[in-house]
């Protein structure tokens, strides 16, 4: 205790770091679904990082086995029409799909939040202009807009990322605007002004961090959606090009063989896609609880 009185901060830092892990454990234990979703999430991350080094076959090498082999001991998910190993291709595709969706969501989160924060805090013309801009984006069918952007800007992975980020922008901007504008005149914001914080510091140091809990839910739901969007673009032949493994392309290629009965070509990448989206949809509440100080006791 005497130590605490002399130098409280170091003690508190250690305490709060321990508290953080404790808090994470508590949140996972409190809601089993959150525990499962965090487990699945870390599983996905592990597959994305280590998958390419662990897969039994080169994902783009043809003829590693007989063509169109059903799932078996050598080829767990079977082989495709060029004799490539479907399991290896599905596993390796994880990294690319996660990379596209994470960077797209990160971009729209950062820019959407900035636009929304300014609109919500300063109001007036900033609000009107950004608001109409967002309305314009939302006026298009979003998938068609993404198609248009990729088609116009060129068929590359970066452009898929930009297109996905642009179509998600309005959701973050609107949410940030709403969350900021309800706190704009809160007591702690007035107090921050009295403490000598400049307007920008009040906005990004005090108000914005308080909008994180609802934003986290938005991010995780959006992640699932961004994966679907990227896969959808690849499915119709935009963005990622064969033979690069990507879930959307795998499904697109496999779709040709459904009629002739080679179901494994479609089912396994489809399941991977579903699992990823499912994970991100589940993880939202857990993430919110994690960043909300009020849940920490």
């Amino acid at each position: 205790m005497s130590n605490l009185a002399i130098n409280p901060t170091t003690d508190q830092r250690v305490q709060s770091r321990e508290g953080y892990w404790h808090h994470l454990r508590y949140i996972m234990a409190e809601n089993p679904l959150t525990g499962i979703s965090f487990g699945l999430f870390f599983g996905l991350i592990a597959v994305a990082i280590f998958g390419p080094y662990l897969v039994p076959f080169d994902p783009v090498a043809t003829g590693v086995g007989p063509a169109l082999q059903p799932p078996g001991v050598n080829h767990w998910f079977g082989t495709d029409h060029l004799g490539r190993d479907v399991f290896s291709r599905v596993v390796v595709a994880t990294r690319l799909d996660l990379l596209i969706s994470v960077s797209a969501v990160a971009l729209s989160f950062v820019f959407g939040s900035i636009i929304g924060c300014f609109a919500g805090y300063f109001g007036g013309w900033t609000d009107r202009i950004s608001g109409r801009l967002m309305d314009t984006i939302m006026a298009f069918p979003l998938f068609v807009l993404a198609m248009g952007i990729v088609a116009a800007a060129g068929n590359s992975i970066e452009n898929i990322v930009y297109a996905t980020a642009i179509i998600n922008l309005p959701f973050y901007a609107r949410m940030a605007r709403a969350e900021v504008s309800i706190r704009r005149n809160a007591g702690f914001v007035q107090a921050a002004r009295l403490s000598g914080n400049s307007e920008l510091r009040v906005l990004f140091g005090h108000i914005f961090p308080n909008t994180l809990p609802p934003m986290m839910v938005q991010i995780s739901l959006n992640m699932g959606w961004a994966i679907l969007n990227a896969a959808g673009l690849s499915f119709i032949g935009l963005g990622v090009q064969p033979p690069m493994p990507e879930w959307g392309i795998l499904v697109a290629e496999g779709a040709n063989f459904i009629i002739s009965g080679e179901w494994w070509l479609v089912v396994f990448p489809g399941l991977a896609l579903m699992l990823a989206v499912f994970t991100f949809n589940l993880i939202g509440d857990g993430l919110r609880d994690l960043v909300d100080p009020q849940r920490r006791t």
Partner: peptide, 14 residues
């Protein structure tokens, strides 16, 4: 400086 009406509202919850 100022002391505010609602002590809860006037402290940053984070």
């Amino acid at each position: 400086q100022m002391v505010f009406q609602d002590p809860t509202d006037s402290l940053n919850p984070r």
